[in-house]
C-alpha cells in the first residue's frame, strides 16, 4: 500500500515537476511568474485532441506537432506581449501573464467549448508489479516521459551553446550581454522551452484529468508551490519539491482523508515559508524583487 501510494505520487509529481521547471526557467530569466504556463499545456491538450481526432494523425506525430505548436506559442507570447513591457516591475509582468491566461482560456473555450472532453488516448490502468508495489502502466509511462524530457533538458543546459547561454543570462543578464550573448534571443528561447515543456505536460496529463479550459488550474498551483521549494530559482529544488508534493498528497489522501489531498500543497507551502522563506534547497537569492 505504502509503496504503491509513493509510486503513483511520484508519477503525478513528475508532471508537477515538469510544469515547475518551466515556471522556474521563465522566472529566473525574466522575473515573470508565468500564470499562463498551465494554459500553454491546456492549449497543447486541445490541439492533441484536434490532431488525433479531426486529422487522424498517429500518436507520435501528434506529440511532435503539439510540442512544436506550444513552443511557438511560448515564443509568440514573449515576442508580442512580454517583450514590450520587459523592463517593468514584476507585478506588471505577472498581471500581463494573467492577460495571456484570459486570452488563451477565451480562445480555447470559443473554438472548442467549455465542457470537459475525453482525450482520445486512454490512460492505461494495467497494473505492473514493481517489487511488491503495483503501479498502473499509464503512470509508469508518464514517469518515463518525464525522465526522458528531464534528460533532454539536462543535455540542453549543459552541452549546447544556447542552454549554457541561458544559464549565463540567469546568473547575470548584464555580464551575459557584455560577453556577446544575445540576451533578447535567449529570453525568447526561455519562453520557447517553457512552451516545449508545456506541450508534453498537456499531452501526458490529458488522459488523466480530461480536457477543458480550466484543466490545469490545480496542477499550476501545485507547480508554483514546488517552484517555491527551490526558491523559484533552483530546478533541482523545484523537482524535489514537486515529487514531495505528489507523494505527500497521495499519502494524505490514502491514509487520512481524501478531502485533504488538495490542501496538502498549501499546508506544505505555509510551513515551508514560515521556516525557510528562501526555499528548501539553499539557494542564495541573487535578485531581490
Amino acid at each position: 500500500m505504502l509503496g504503491q501510494l509513493i509510486l503513483s505520487g511520484i508519477a503525478t509529481g513528475s508532471l508537477y515537476a515538469l510544469t515547475a521547471i518551466a515556471v522556474v526557467l521563465v522566472f529566473r530569466n525574466t522575473r515573470t511568474i508565468n500564470l499562463a504556463q498551465g494554459d500553454f499545456a491546456m492549449v497543447g491538450a486541445f490541439l492533441g485532441i484536434y490532431f488525433l481526432k479531426q486529422l487522424g494523425f498517429s500518436y507520435y506525430t501528434t506529440v511532435l506537432l503539439v510540442v512544436a505548436s506550444t513552443t511557438l506559442l511560448g515564443v509568440a507570447v514573449e515576442w508580442l506581449i512580454m517583450r514590450p513591457i520587459a523592463k517593468s516591475d514584476w507585478l506588471t509582468l505577472f498581471t500581463a501573464t494573467i492577460g495571456v491566461f484570459y486570452i488563451l482560456t477565451g480562445v480555447m473555450g470559443w473554438i472548442w467549448g467549455r465542457d470537459t472532453k475525453a482525450f482520445p488516448v486512454n490512460f492505461d490502468p494495467t497494473p505492473i508489479d514493481l517489487g511488491g508495489a503495483l503501479i498502473s502502466m499509464g503512470h509508469l509511462y508518464n514517469i518515463g516521459w518525464a525522465l526522458a524530457i528531464g534528460v533532454v533538458l539536462y543535455w540542453f543546459f549543459n552541452h549546447t551553446k544556447q542552454g549554457i547561454a541561458m544559464r549565463a543570462v540567469t546568473d547575470d543578464p548584464e555580464i551575459a550581454h557584455l560577453m556577446g550573448i544575445p540576451v533578447k534571443f535567449i529570453v525568447m528561447l526561455t519562453w520557447g522551452v517553457a512552451g516545449f515543456i508545456a506541450g508534453f505536460v498537456g499531452i501526458l496529463i490529458a488522459p488523466i484529468i480530461y480536457v477543458s479550459p480550466e484543466m490545469m488550474d490545480e496542477v499550476l498551483v501545485k507547480a508554483y508551490v514546488a517552484a517555491v521549494f527551490g526558491g523559484l530559482y533552483s530546478i533541482r529544488g523545484a523537482v524535489i519539491g514537486a515529487l514531495m508534493i505528489g507523494v505527500a498528497e497521495n499519502l494524505a489522501g490514502g491514509y487520512l482523508d481524501s478531502s485533504l489531498k488538495t490542501s496538502t500543497a498549501f499546508i506544505m507551502i505555509v510551513v515551508l515559508l514560515a521556516f525557510r522563506p528562501q526555499g528548501l534547497i539553499g539557494v542564495q537569492k541573487r535578485r531581490e524583487i
Partner: peptide, 13 residues
C-alpha cells in the same frame, strides 16, 4: 462569455 475573456485579457495587456 469566451469573447469577454479574450477582451478582458487584451484590455489588461
Amino acid at each position: 462569455a469566451d469573447f469577454s475573456f479574450i477582451l478582458k485579457g487584451v484590455v489588461l495587456i
